[in-house]
Simulated assay, not measured.
Amino acid sequence: MTELVVTTPDGAKLKARRHGQGQPLVLVSGLGGTAGFWDPAIALLGSEFELITFDQRGIAGSSRGSAPVDIAQLAADVLTVCDAMGVESADFLGHSTGGCIVQTIAVTAAERVRNLVLSAAWLRPGNYLKALFEFRLRLLATDPAAYAESAALLSYAPEWLEANWTKYERATATPPTDPAKQAIVAERIRALLAYDGSDQIGRVAARTLVLGARDDMIVPAFLQEDLAAELAGAELRLLPDGGHFYPGSRTETFAPLVADWLSGRAETMTS
């Protein structure tokens, strides 16, 4: 693994990492925004791909910068990291909010996107997702501990979390009580709530896989099905379980599936 710090035009310093070798695969995480989200999959994917991950602005090892945070800015940050690493084109995999980010890249920088994987992603939020994240936004402001607890409980499949309870304990050990951290999380929630890709989805030309889990309680399967239906020629694969964080809880299924699809080894898949 190699690491570097990438400076954006507005002064944010993004901590980026490079793993493995092969065709570049850029991994963009969701609301949490950490490169570490992908750690469970790196060992399985790094033998075939050059994996690029980074902490998003204001998260973990990256500084905030001065630019307003919205999905367009977060997409620009991804391309800034790619430029710094000399990556002209790549496969892009975005999870949850990361799916909104890479959808935007597929439209605004289509020539840089070889293949697109949209994991636990959506096109437009709908009433359920809006209500859920507005509720989480209120919890963040009034009860940070409950915010962290609800995030852990919603993100994992209950049976898996019961058997891996240390994940819950780690996720809830340090709730976002610092006002500066709360502000960063809040602006990221507002950014995802403001995203609606309806007016641009028709311009996504990249070969696309929509991938998720049927028991996702954060981005329900119907939103992922709607996304796939709007993307001409997109393939849809919904795993029977795994929750929202299925890339970590079902890594041994998720990583080979992604690798096979990107490499063209998988036949056309349907849910």
Rank of each mutant, 00 (worst) to 15 (best):
G233Q: 09
L231P: 15
R190H: 09
L79V: 14
L129R: 12
V5H: 12
G126N: 03
R124T: 13
H19R: 03
S249N: 04
S89D: 04
G243P: 09
L231V: 10
E159R: 13
T251Q: 00
G98E: 02
T172G: 09
A141F: 15
W261Q: 00
D143G: 07
L118G: 08
D143Q: 12
R170P: 07
G202P: 00
I71F: 03
R114Y: 10
A186C: 05
T208L: 06
T80L: 06
A255K: 07
D199R: 13
L238A: 06
T108H: 11
L223E: 15
F54A: 06
Q56N: 08
G30L: 02
I201Y: 02
A145Q: 11
I42V: 14
E111M: 15
L227C: 05
R64T: 14
V258Y: 00
A255G: 02
V5K: 09
Q200P: 03
G58A: 04
S155C: 13
Q23A: 14
V113L: 09
I105M: 00
I105H: 03
T34M: 13
P9H: 03
V5S: 10
V204T: 03
A16K: 07
R57D: 06
W165G: 09
A67R: 07
G30M: 02
I71M: 01
S29P: 00
L257S: 00
G212P: 11
A259L: 04
L137T: 08
L4I: 09
G264A: 03
A173Q: 12
I52Y: 14
A163F: 06
L45N: 02
A43D: 10
A145I: 08
G264Q: 00
F254H: 06
R57L: 04
L140I: 13
A151N: 14
F37M: 05
A180V: 09
G46L: 03
G98V: 01
E88V: 12
L209H: 13
S62C: 05
W165A: 00
V219C: 14
S89A: 02
I71R: 03
L93K: 04
V107D: 08
F135R: 15
E187T: 10
P158D: 05
V28Q: 04
L31G: 01
N127G: 14
S198E: 09
D10T: 11
T174Y: 11
S63G: 05
S198N: 06
A75F: 08
G233D: 03
V204M: 02
G202N: 07
A75S: 10
N164I: 00
P24G: 00
Q103F: 01
Q103V: 04
